[in-house]
Amino acid sequence: MRPDSRNGSGERGSRCRRGRASRRRRRLAARYTLLTIGALVVLAPLYLTFVSSLLPPSALAERPPPLFPLDPQWHDYVIAWTQGDLGVYLRNSAIQTGIIVCGQLVTSVLAGYAFAFLRFPFKRALFVVFLATLMIPFEVTLVTNTQTISELGWYNTFAGLTVPFLATGVGTFLLRQAFLQIPRDLREAATLDGYGRLRFLLRIALPLARPALAALGVFSFLAAWNQYLWPLVVTGSGNGVRTVQIGLKLLQGTEVSRTDVALAGTVIAVLPLLVLLVVFQKQLVRSLTAGAVK
């Protein structure tokens, strides 16, 4: 090969590398722009709610609304907490959510295990029935459920708030899929090692299904915490078991019927969710992308 031709190919290679690097930079820039826009769309309402909760009532009506509170009104939070009884509502929500999350985890683990590992008659048909429940909107069962709860005398009780949600088709499906990933050899090795079904579940299957469990826990928490319609229907006057979502609605109907206070209450109610999302974001993403890449 002649030296000049070698130089020529070297320049071509260098140009090619530069071209590739520049294309990569452009793609990266486009990606970040899109992500930034997405983040703004998602975070802007949260930010505006937070800012508005710190504004004095007069500033709330300004157009465009101020984007930074120069004189933050922290006492709105105190009013929401004390006069709006948010502490009680939050406690009720925590109890209701705790019962529902624990219930769903337990029932989903047991049902998922049965569908994944046990042999019993009509297994496939039963699983289809489980999946079919996913197609029925909650609103369809509202009247029947309300009637049942009231006949059981569970109106305005935590039992009424939580029992209809203790089992979930999604959770069962999620855990079944996670258990099916466990190789049969592990089950058999544990059997030979003397571990029965329950011990295998507790010692082997559950630790291996931790990501699915965490994801189910987070989803259950979000769904239970954000419930509005059901708590509204099965709880009554007095704040004995009323949840924070109902409490927020009531904030507007009481003497503290002020938008800035209501917004402060909203921020307080959203805080546990934000903490949960930050702590469990890895599990959430993993569960959402599970099965996407083999």
Binding site: P183, D185, L186, E188, A189, T191, L192, D193, G194, Y195, G196
Partner: peptide
């Protein structure tokens, strides 16, 4: 199986 007092080595090691 647990009472047969046999130990198995699996192809996948398990």
């Amino acid at each position: 199986p647990k009472d047969r007092d046999v130990a198995m080595v699996f192809q996948s090691y398990a």
